[in-house]
Amino acid sequence: MAIDRQTVNRVAFLARLKIDDDKIEATEEEFNKILNWVEQLNEVNTDEVEPLSAVNDLPLICREDNVTEGSQADKILANAPMAEYGYFVVPKVVE
């Protein structure tokens, strides 16, 4: 699978990463190296193997429906770059 410049830009946008123009070529190469390495997995025959969704074969532990947390807006907002009236504040988001 070959990665081109357009794909690098697309992935960077989705991950909200800024890649400088002079770094794109190098990133493209690195991408391809990683993918080629992972592609070795295609050599294994998986015809009879069910897709794996969890690596550890652990049971799912559930909680009871009780309220155990809350009333801590000050702590929730403690690291917010901007907060007002108990809300997080961000630059205007209009889709």
Partner: peptide
């Protein structure tokens, strides 16, 4: 409580109190 945490689902609480 919420689907993945122990915070309340109650409607109408002060901002960010059920978090």
């Amino acid at each position: 409580s919420k689907i993945f945490s122990g915070a309340s689902t109650r409607f109408g609480a002060d901002a960010n109190e059920n978090v």
